[in-house]
């Protein structure tokens, strides 16, 4: 199965596959971020591979100069009972990744979560807004430079709000 996936992807997207690695029997393929939608569409629609089930999308902050963030796609093929992990790297200067909501509608909330936690924007997403934190929250909590205990006063408590308005 692994060889088949790599072979098929190499035939079609030879230049867009950056790296193929395996750890503990799990296959990870790093793809160029411009091509992620095409790769996903191919993987889903190919009769033999049939990765029709999107398990998860998440972000990772590697906290380094180049390619700081990564977006990880976990796929599952119902037909072959096989897992595949796709990965795209995102540089801090250009935090936009094409959205895969057109391929799987399950991607909708996962991408919103990634946006909420890392600030990675997904172009073409139908409804990209924060999912966990309040709308007016300014930071991205899962970035490595955000402190665990948060920034005091960034989300006001009920009582504090009133005091603020009373004082003007």
């Amino acid at each position: 199965m692994k060889d088949k996936i790599i072979e098929k992807l190499n035939n079609l997207f030879k230049e867009d596959i950056v790296e193929v690695s395996e750890f503990r029997g799990e296959l990870t393929i790093v793809v160029k971020k411009e091509k992620i939608v095409d790769v996903c569409k191919f993987l889903k629609e190919d009769q033999e591979l049939a990765f029709d089930y999107l398990v998860d999308i998440c972000g990772v902050d590697y906290f380094r100069e180049k390619d700081r963030f990564a977006v990880v796609y976990n796929l599952w093929s119902l037909k072959n009972k096989f897992r595949l992990r796709l990965k795209v790297f995102v540089d801090e200067s250009d935090l936009v990744v094409p959205s895969v909501t057109s391929v799987w509608s399950a991607a909708n909330w996962h991408e919103r979560e990634t946006f909420d936690m890392f600030g990675i924007k997904f172009s073409g997403h139908p409804d990209l807004r924060r999912i966990y934190m309040p709308e007016d929250f300014e930071y991205y909590p899962l970035r490595k430079d955000f402190p665990l205990q948060g920034i005091p006063g960034s989300i006001p408590l009920p009582g504090q709000e009133k005091i603020k308005t009373q004082r003007g």
């Binding site: 750890f23 503990r24 799990e26 990870t28 398990v55 998860d56 998440c58 990772v60 990880v72 976990n74 897992r83 992990r85």
Partner: peptide
């Protein structure tokens, strides 16, 4: 390295992805 392991929980697939 990075691993993903999922189990069948009462609610569905619960997976942990560890980097």
């Amino acid at each position: 390295g990075e691993v993903y392991h999922a189990v069948e929980n009462p609610k569905g697939e619960l997976g942990f992805y560890i980097v």
